[in-house]
């Protein structure tokens, strides 16, 4: 019966090959061409000069690239704690028996994730604005006029200030993922734990965390990957400024390729981003696994 409606292998292969071809075309082809171009000195015109690994040698010595890398790592750390951490706490709160209107919390919590990055950037620029921003206004009316600043022009603070919108936007996103993970856990387990006298904190650490470990791992990977390629929020708010104080790797690659029209070196930067991102993402997975090793559940 089943066999009669099962399509031929050929047909299945044909359908499968559409996404495969698309994937190869949009991921591998650019990656390999970037790898190829990164071996040239190419200023965007018709002339390319083969220079071997020279671009990579300058990349390793390029202070701006490593400064941008450190900003990405900063973002990753802030966002793992901020996005996934806060989302986990929110999930526990929303899931609590005492919380009313859970649906509304879920919906509104998720809402910022649906707004485009450029809008988020503009919203937060208005908050930070020197003359008309809410932040400075609050400081003034609460009598802290001396603390008023041109916020996005403070090299030492700018990374923290651009990280806040990122955290704010994506809490809801991880909340939804974690909520669905918890929903799939048998509620009897929580009830039993409660009867046995475990308090909320103990239930979170010893019951919930191990049970949703794999989902948490996915969240962290998503978070790391998302922040290694951070671009749009920061581009809207500061364009990497002042100077290079909020420069991230993707933006540096973009600037070198398109603002400086240095395609060869820009390609080398893209390959560099690819490699360090792989290392960071792989490393973070290993780290999480290691931290969770004695929490029982595989």
């Amino acid at each position: 019966m089943l066999r009669s409606i099962k399509p031929k292998g050929r047909v299945i292969a044909l359908f499968l090959c559409i996404p495969v071809v698309w994937y190869v075309f949009s991921v591998f082809v650019p990656l390999i061409t970037a790898l190829f171009y990164s071996l040239f000195e190419w200023k965007g015109g018709p002339n390319k000069t083969f220079i071997g690994l020279e671009n990579y040698i300058s990349l390793i010595k390029d202070g701006t690239f490593w400064e941008a890398f450190s900003h990405n790592i900063y973002l990753v750390l802030v966002c793992i704690v901020g996005q996934v951490g806060i989302a986990f706490v929110f999930v526990l709160i929303v899931n609590s028996r005492l919380t009313k209107l859970k649906g509304i919390h879920r919906t509104f919590g998720f809402f910022p994730s649906t707004i485009s990055a450029v809008c988020i950037g503009f919203i937060w620029m208005m908050i930070y604005d020197y003359k008309r921003g809410i932040l400075n206004w609050i400081l003034e009316v609460t009598g802290h006029a001396d603390k008023v600043k041109v916020w996005l022009n403070e090299p030492s603070m700018v990374m923290a200030l651009v990280a806040i919108p990122l955290v704010w936007q994506f809490i809801g996103y991880y909340m939804v993922i974690l909520l669905s993970a918890i929903a799939s856990v048998d509620t009897e387990i929580f009830e039993v734990a409660e009867l046995d006298g475990a308090n909320a904190f103990q239930r979170a650490i010893y019951i919930v965390l191990p049970l949703i470990k794999n989902t948490l791992l996915v969240c962290i990977t998503l978070c790391v990957a998302g922040n290694m390629k951070a671009f749009d929020h920061i581009y809207t708010m500061t364009e990497g400024g002042p100077g290079t104080s909020s420069m991230v790797m993707a933006m540096y690659g973009y600037k070198v390729s398109f603002a400086q029209m240095n395609m060869g070196y820009g390609s080398a930067i893209s390959v560099g981003i690819f490699i360090v991102s792989l290392i960071v993402i792989g490393g973070s997975q290993k780290l999480v696994n290691w931290l969770m090793r004695d929490k029982g559940v595989e």
Partner: peptide, 19 residues
């Protein structure tokens, strides 16, 4: 070349800040 001006512009912004 835009490669020169991009470097200059970035440095200039820092410089005008006094950094």
């Amino acid at each position: 070349s835009s490669a020169v001006w991009d470097v200059f512009n970035t440095g200039l912004q820092d410089m005008l800040n006094g950094d």
